[in-house]
């Protein structure tokens, strides 16, 4: 998988390393900005109220 990506990146080894670094940073950014905020409420840490059922009705 990673070997395949590395082979398909353009340029020499230095350019490839730079492009992969940018790719990694972009993926981490997307994860922290969009994916994790979506996934986090599915975990139980947000349940701090006693009227979640009532709140849904209101």
């Amino acid at each position: 998988m990673y070997g395949w990506i590395w082979r398909h990146l353009p340029g020499n080894a230095w350019v490839k390393a730079l492009v992969s670094l940018v790719l990694v940073l972009a993926i981490v950014y997307v994860l922290f900005q969009y994916v994790f905020p979506w996934a986090e409420p599915l975990l139980p840490f947000n349940d701090v109220t006693v009227d979640r059922g009532m709140g849904a009705v209101r």
Partner: peptide, 18 residues
């Protein structure tokens, strides 16, 4: 093994996030 390493990295990143 690459998929496993990727999944592990994702989990560590998610723990850091939370």
């Amino acid at each position: 093994s690459e998929v496993c390493v990727t999944a592990g990295t994702l989990i560590v990143l998610f723990v850091v996030y939370v």
